[in-house]
Design a protein around this nucleic acid. Structure first.
Lengths: 148, 148
DNA sequence: ATATAATATTGTACTCATTTCAATTTCGAA
DNA sequence: TTCGAAATTGAAATGAGTACAATATTATAT
């Protein structure tokens, strides 16, 4: 289901972000699709509807969203950045066969952080890699390249 | 102190890597300097001694070392890859002011991995970011750019 | 409603890490 | 010593992300 443009615009206004047509569309995509899209994913999805859309706009938009705390950057993939709408703390698992990123619950705080006594920690990430159940079941039918 | 070239060459041979002049020099650098160097770091350090040295060789060399299990990739910095000679499991802390990467002990295994029951996990990383004691003490005297 | 100033969008050009490719050099075994 | 395989090198390509300047849009004050 699709949230109304007005509702999405209010979401942005509350965060001090001007609800331009493009920004509302990006937010709508993020809310609808979830997952961990890249700039490229978003561009490919919205470009048909907004022929004039530029990737630069998506970069700018996501930068604004991250600064406002609407989305988070996931840096599990060296190739490109992914964006995550789940704001609660959680871990990320990336399948090395299909490239899909999964969230999993993990409690990061009770870590024995001996050795970082004098450090100020502003960001904690837990990143796992391996093979997801889907690729384990269908070894040859999925891979990163195909899914592009 | 510097390990003998013969000793380093044997280290490589044992891993099935042909001990070329360049590879021995890269391994020597890694053993001597430790830390979390980038290709650029290694290139700048070795280039004066090996004028013909190409960055591609360092890329190739590190890829071979990683495949052989001699070093590990650290993907905490989106900009560029870092390499780590510490093979035991540990976390990485990256200072957002000076860019320095620190190791810290962390026991990753006893994680409550509910939600990944069906997954094959081949790699686990714990990445923290923030400010290191050095930069907390000298706020203006260190930064990523200067340290380049 | 309109003018004006501030902000967003867009295309182009650029940076920079990494990879690809082909040519040359080096190494190792016969 | 020779020959084939593997390594090194430079040049060129790739691809994500950024910088910049021009244009378009929006918000606010009049």
């Amino acid at each position: 289901m699709e949230a109304s443009a007005a509702f999405l615009a209010d979401q942005l206004k509350m965060k001090g972000i001007r609800p331009s047509y493009q920004r509302v569309k990006v937010l709508d995509y993020l809310n609808r699709e979830g997952g961990h899209p890249t700039v490229e994913d978003i561009y490919r999805a919205l470009s048909p509807d907004i022929p004039s859309l530029s990737k630069v706009t998506i970069y700018n938009t996501l930068r604004a969203f991250v600064a406002a705390g609407l989305v988070r950057v996931v840096e599990i993939d060296e190739g490109q950045m992914h964006y995550d709408t789940t704001l609660e703390d959680h871990g990320h698992f990336m399948c090395e066969a299909c490239g899909t990123i999964y969230n999993f619950p993990v409690n990061i705080d009770p870590f024995p952080i001996e050795g970082l006594k004098q450090f100020v920690i502003t960001q904690k990430s837990v990143h796992f890699k391996g093979l997801c159940p889907n690729c384990l079941d269908n070894p040859s039918t999925t891979n990163k390249e195909k899914n592009k």
